[in-house]
């Protein structure tokens, strides 16, 4: 699936990701999260809209 791997839904991924991001990016975490959220939203929306298929069908590099 092309959906981003944010973890199983039962784990409250938003919260877990927030803590992870804070550890990685410190005080800049909110800025990076905002940029990433916008980018992922565009990606998800484009995929929903355009229904792209993988090329090639089988990965070149296994």
């Amino acid at each position: 699936s092309w959906r981003s791997s944010l973890g199983p839904p039962c784990e409250r991924p938003g919260e877990r990701r927030g803590a992870e991001m804070k550890k990685l990016y410190g005080k800049d975490a909110p800025k990076i999260i905002a940029m990433e959220t916008a980018m992922q939203l565009t990606f998800d929306r484009n995929c929903d809209l355009k229904k792209p298929k993988y090329w090639p069908v089988i990965p070149l590099k296994l």
Binding site: S4, E36, M39, Q40, T42, F43, K50
Partner: peptide, 8 residues
């Protein structure tokens, strides 16, 4: 178009 944030 766009990249996912994990660059996958």
């Amino acid at each position: 178009g766009a990249s996912d944030i994990d660059v996958l």
